[in-house]
Write a protein that binds this DNA or RNA. Structure first.
Length: 496
DNA sequence: CGTCTTTGACCGGCGC
DNA sequence: GCGCCGGTCAAAGACG
């Protein structure tokens, strides 16, 4: 997949200035240690999404003339110690030395700048790839939706709307009230890599819930109350949906626009790389957590999992990241509407209808809660299919029209605490085609704003059918100031 | 001095 | 009941 991304490495500018410097030095009769113009061409080794290393020659001045061994110029400085005019020579040498040191410093700083730029470019690339995947899939979904509609009409007699996994009648009934009653992993990936969530058989309950976040994150999983009747499917209600992003990154963490504070690190079983735990510190009591871990099989792959609901507006960068789940949302949404045979089926007819999405979506029976994984390390090749793991199954992927998305995120997501950014980005039914990208971002941001979107989407189906209009709540809890996370920590109730 | 990271302790669920 | 494991807490240290 070739994605043109706005690389702004300022390479040309740097190169130009460097050339000018070279000319200056030449005119001053200085020893030119950096005259080799060829070295201004940096060979940037990049790995594309399918893991193949490609080398691209970028005509940019990295300033990384790393050959520090004695060059001819160096020798000229060192070896001509015997000179009739020692003072002049010494002076020249000192000047050159100072010049060298200056150059060295300049290059060091440039080096760091370039590194930062590369990291940023990498992140931008990832974000764009996310959006691209989302856009492409949206189109595919729109096309396939008609076919699935036809199919639905054919089977309408025998179809009984069910949720993603057959949790029993009680669980199905709970879907309206308990949006966490799902227990599978949806993987938007053809990657064979092991998902981080599969490594972490998460059995936690929401004991970290802070008092102020209780009201802000109604989607948070309720704590397991011992007195709670068993017929409320405790294991299902304990589960949280997550959004997981796999991306190749040298950086220890993908910059997603939010501010995070590390609060823990653990060695996870089956992975030599530690798993880091972060919480969002963009607003007081923001319950959103994320886990960052490198893939055990490919350490260049960074797996970032998000969990929880932001109680503050998302910055643009975070919106881009939020787009990661739009495709998954569609997948889940559609799966909830037409899946009739239960998700444990290994194959579904819809897959033949929608090969693209099918290739990207899998269900893991091993995951204790729904996890949407966007794999940016694999090509989004519709013809390529890989199973993610032996325990994962294909998902049916009938779809809803993309036009339904704005409604989806406005009608039944009262608990989403949608930010004003999102709200403003949500178009009306009449103008939702105006800015498809904005809509998509907003919609997906809403999804990631509520990782329990699986059920929320399921609930949204009802609203779509009912044709209700978005009811967007104003977010009065916005607080984008940097807050001390420990404050929110202290407010956490120590519920046991 | 305030903020953030590190890291061992602790908690709770689950499997045996 | 016990041990394992994932996740979180919180004290101590690092850092600017």
């Amino acid at each position: 997949m070739d994605i043109m991304f706005p690389l702004n490495l300022n390479g040309r500018e740097e190169n130009t200035s460097s050339l000018q410097d070279d000319e200056k030095r030449m005119s001053l009769g200085e020893v030119d240690f950096f005259s080799d113009k060829k070295r201004h061409i940096a060979v940037v080794k990049m790995e594309d999404s399918n893991g193949e290393a490609t080398q691209r020659e970028l005509d940019l001045n990295t300033g990384l003339q790393l050959v520090t061994a004695n060059t001819g110029s160096d020798q000229s400085m060192v070896e001509d110690g015997i000179s009739p005019d020692h003072h002049v020579e010494d002076k020249l040498a000192m000047n050159e030395l100072a010049q060298l040191q200056f150059e060295l410093q300049r290059m060091n700083s440039e080096n760091q700048k370039i590194r930062g730029m590369l990291t940023q470019v990498n992140n931008n690339y990832n974000a764009l790839q996310i959006q691209f995947v989302a856009l492409v899939q949206q189109e595919k979904l729109a096309i396939a939706e008609r076919k699935s509609e036809e199919k639905k009409q054919e089977n309408v007699e025998s179809m009984v709307p069910r949720q993603f996994m057959d949790l029993g009648p009680a669980a199905v009934n709970e879907m309206d009230e308990l949006p966490n009653s799902l227990s599978e992993e949806i993987t938007l990936s053809g990657s064979p890599h092991t998902n981080m969530m599969e490594l972490s058989r998460n059995k936690r309950i929401g004991r970290e819930e802070s008092p102020e976040s209780d009201g802000l994150a109604p989607n948070k999983v309720p704590k397991l109350n011992p007195s709670k009747p068993l017929d409320q499917t405790p294991e299902a209600t304990m589960r949280k949906a997550r959004v997981s992003v796999r991306a190749r990154s040298e950086a220890p963490m993908i910059s997603d626009g939010c501010q995070w504070r590390k609060y823990g690190q653990k060695m996870a079983k089956g992975n030599p790389c530690p798993r880091a735990y972060y919480r969002c510190t963009m607003a007081v009591g923001c319950p959103v957590r994320k886990q960052v871990q490198r893939c055990a099989e490919d350490r260049e792959i960074l797996i970032t999992s998000y969990e929880g609901t932001h109680n503050h507006p998302l910055p643009p960068a975070a919106m881009a990241m939020a787009s990661a789940t739009s495709a998954a949302a569609n997948t889940l949404l559609s799966g909830s509407t037409t899946s009739t045979d239960g998700l444990m089926n290994t194959t579904f007819p819809a897959r033949t209808i929608l090969p693209f999405t099918s290739n990207m979506a899998t269900i893991s029976a091993s995951a204790p809660f729904p996890t949407v994984t966007l794999d940016l390390t694999q090509p989004t090749n519709p013809l390529q299919f890989q199973r993610t793991s032996p325990v994962q199954f294909q998902v049916p992927l009938p779809v809803l029209p993309t036009t339904s998305m704005p409604q989806v995120f406005g009608s039944k997501f009262s608990g989403l605490q949608m930010s004003q950014d999102i709200q403003s980005a949500l178009p009306s039914q009449a103008e939702h085609h105006q800015s498809f990208t904005d809509t998509l971002s907003a919609a997906t941001a809403a999804i990631t704003a509520d990782p329990n979107f699986t059920a929320a989407l399921a609930a949204a189906i009802t609203s779509i059918i009912g044709g209700s209009h978005p009811n967007i709540n104003d977010n009065t809890t916005n607080n984008t100031s940097n807050v001390k996370a420990s404050t929110s920590n202290k407010t956490k109730s120590s519920i046991h």
